[in-house]
Amino acid sequence: MSLLKEVLSRPGGEEIRRCFACSTCSGSCPVREIDGRFNPRRIIRMVLLDLKEEVLKSDFIWYCTTCNSCQERCPQGVRIYNIMNILKNIAVKEGIIHPTFKAQVDLVGRMGRLYEVEDFDNKKRTKVDLPEVKKVFPEVRRLFDLTGVRIDE
């Protein structure tokens, strides 16, 4: 499927055609200000031109801090933050995932938590009168299985 069609078909992607390239998103992006390779307007433009491989294989789709400034300020109601998420999701579906995100997915899938809770942590908690917390949630793993997400141990 073409990248543009796929973005248009997902919730939050429908408005991408309304972009008139004003660059408010790029002007609002805190990452763009530091590293010009990450440029939301350019990414939107590349999707509109259906440059699938160039978009999905580029590092910059992983650089969104999810701050939402672009989306809040877009005068055309393009949901840029949602589109960045859609692009990452499509990349993952095509087998391209940033190792950091892969690691996060595996941690959450295995334990139901992003950070491992060890006995040491619970001891530290009880020492300051905080209740112990659960270490693993098998139900979460089940939700990964149900949605066909493979977890590496």
Binding site: Q104, G112, R113, L114, K134
Partner: peptide, 27 residues
Amino acid sequence: IDEPDFACCGFPVRSSYEDTAFLLAAR
């Protein structure tokens, strides 16, 4: 009130697997 069954909200998974993340939040 503490609820020991609350797990991850889903945010760390959202960039990679939106549906899975959604279900984590829904849980």
